[in-house]
Amino acid sequence: MMDVLYEKDLRPLKLHILESPRHRRTIREIGRRLGVEPGWLIRWAMAHFDMQLLENLPARFEQGLAHQGADDPLASAIGAELFTVYLPFFTTEEMNAALEQARERLGRGEGMEAVVKDTLRVLGRGFA
């Protein structure tokens, strides 16, 4: 049996990265948007992101907010680009499926705000 050289449990180190005030604020803000407890988000991010991406999370979040396109109000309200390209929490397929559903509901005449909130809730359920 060969030992894997230099491999180590990185979870405590990843948690150290997420402990800085800026990261905490960013995670809280993302959690608020998705309706997810920050703890779940942190757990999911630690399992799926590498350390450099975790370090860069606040900068990417800011950049994503600054570059939200105005041409599709629904997509920018949900954060279609923000949560796929800038912060890879979801794959593009997942996001497109969610957007499709949201559009359908909008077509049925439901309120924009409620649709956006529900869509993000549904997306956020994947973390828990």
Partner: peptide, 14 residues
């Protein structure tokens, strides 16, 4: 590629 850090984490902000 994936970057693994933690070699220089000193906790200066703390």
């Amino acid at each position: 590629a994936e970057v693994e850090l933690g070699y220089m984490k000193k906790g200066i902000e703390r």
